[in-house]
Each structure stands twice: as structure tokens, then as C-alpha cells.
Write a protein that binds this DNA or RNA. Structure first.
Lengths: 152, 152
DNA sequence: ACATCTATATATAAAAT
DNA sequence: TATTTTATATATAGATG
């Protein structure tokens, strides 16, 4: 692409990688935007976590995420791109919903590994605790208590 | 683009629109896949609802998501990236699912705030007993794993 | 860290299959 | 409806400011 074709492997040079990420993320969102407009009726949601764990999201023509807005309001390092600066966030609820849905997706995809993760963790700390009990043997009340405790 | 430039408005011709949608959706997913590979560490999730309400999703992980299983009849797993297509989208079930997710709005708001806080703190120490660590010191991945494990 | 420029690589609209 | 072809439109890697 461009001046030279690059192999589809990880870009090792840090600065180079950052530049490429920013450019391509913008293009990806643009493509999504075009697809929404062209198709009119297509719904697209995208969430991207950069290598540095910075969140970016797309919902139709918006390129702002609620997380990005949080970041810009809290004097965090000014390493954010232009699309984050000075955003007033008119569609707070919309972005929240986007984040929810995609977070849910992320969570769901890991459910298959969840049990294994639990066992790994408990193996490091062999004590008699509820998280060591097989989930299959827990009732709904216990599961809900577990969830509440963790989220607290 | 291509033989002729087309205006960024809704394509009225049904057949034409369908073709364009399929082509561009494939391209969008390809771009996302490249970004994942090139950046190595970037996490991307995309959800697309076609004009006919058919769901398509992209994720860079190899694990199939429960959400996709809800939405689709057929799944085509691959090693690195995944593209799912739902043959039949039971809108009733879909709406129930979305409602279920949206009901967690308050919860997600808190999580969004928590993630912002977490971003401030890098994972300075190995997480052995994650359930004892302050939420403020957990990063995004750790938080998601926590919640996933719980919900699973 | 960005924005711009430019040569090349891709994407893609329309047509053909 | 999907795939392939092909001429043109975009995307973008690398250089530069």
C-alpha cells in the first residue's frame, strides 16, 4: 500500500506503529460511515482498543465514545487524537449503549474460557472459597451474589 | 470509486444496494483484520446490521461469542479473525437480547467510570489474587475477565 | 505528534460470467 | 446471488514540514 507494500505482521517500530494505527483507524471509521450512508438502514458499531488500551468507538457517523469523553475531561496525558478534543458529547446515552453492547460481546466471547480462568486463579490460592466451587453447582441466587460482590 | 464515483447517499436500486453492501462489508472486515494484525494488540469488535436486519460481526479473537450464537444459525469459525453471518435473525429474540443488555445501563456507566480510573494505573504488579485488588488498579482486560468469569 | 504530499497499493462500481 | 474482470477512485506508506 502506498509507497511500499508492507507485510501483514506486527509493526515493530513503535512510532511507526502508532502512526499507522491512527491513520488506519480513521479510515476504518470512514468506511463504516460510508457504508451506513450508502446503505441507509445498515447499523454499524465498532469499538477499538489501541495497543495502549485506549478506547475508540464508532456508531454511524459519530466517532466519539463515552470513554473518550471521560478521558478528555480528566486532564489525562494529551496523547489523544483530534477526534477526542473538545467534544461536547451530544449523544451520551447512545454511546453508552454502544459501549454496553460491545462490552457484552467481549464478555460473551470469553465465557468459554471463564471456567478455566477461574480454576487457574483458584489454583494459585488454594482456599475454600465460593469461586472454587463448580459453577454448574451454584444456584441463581449464589451466582447473583457472586456477580454483585465482584462488581462492587 | 471504481468505474464511477457514486454519491454518498442511499442506493435506491435494491439489487445494486445488496451487492454494494456485501462487497463493502467484506472490505470493512478485511481492513479491521489488517489493523489487528498490523498493530498486534489492538482489539476490534464490529457489529453490522444489514438493511434487511441481518447481523454480521467481526472480532479478532478465535473464540465464538454467545451473542453471535444468539443471532445466527450458522457459524464459520476460523483461527484468527471471525466473520459471522446470521441467516435468520429472529427479531423477537434480538429485541429481548438488546433490552436485556440495555437494562444494564447504570451498571455500565459505573464501569465506564471505573475503566477511566483504571487507565491511570498501569499494571505495576502481578495480579495474583485479583478479587482482592482495588478496582482502581485493574486494567481493562483484567476487569473484563473478572466480569466474564462472574457472569459465566 | 500531526498535517500534507506523492507514488503506489487497494478498493470498488459497473459489467460480464 | 456470487464471483471475476477491469477501469477508476481511494487508501496509505514513507517523506517532509
Amino acid at each position: 500500500m502506498g509507497r511500499q507494500k508492507i507485510p501483514l505482521v506486527k509493526i515493530k517500530k513503535e512510532s511507526h506503529r502508532q502512526v499507522t494505527f491512527s491513520k488506519r483507524r480513521a479510515s476504518l471509521f470512514k468506511k463504516a460511515s460510508e457504508l451506513c450512508t450508502l446503505m441507509c438502514g445498515a447499523e454499524i458499531a465498532i469499538i477499538v482498543f489501541s495497543p495502549a488500551q485506549k478506547p475508540f468507538s464508532f456508531k454511524h457517523t459519530s466517532v466519539e465514545s463515552v470513554l473518550d469523553r471521560h478521558l478528555s475531561q480528566n486532564n489525562l496525558p494529551s496523547t489523544q487524537t483530534q477526534q477526542h478534543r473538545g467534544n461536547v458529547a451530544p449523544s451520551c446515552e447512545l454511546n453508552l449503549r454502544l459501549t454496553e453492547i460491545l462490552n457484552e460481546s467481549e464478555e460473551e466471547k470469553k465465557k468459554g474460557q471463564a471456567m478455566e480462568d477461574m480454576r487457574k486463579v483458584s489454583a494459585r490460592r488454594p482456599m475454600i472459597n465460593w469461586w472454587e466451587a463448580p459453577v454448574e453447582e451454584m444456584n441463581m441466587v449464589q451466582l447473583q451474589e457472586m456477580k454483585s460482590a465482584l462488581e462492587s
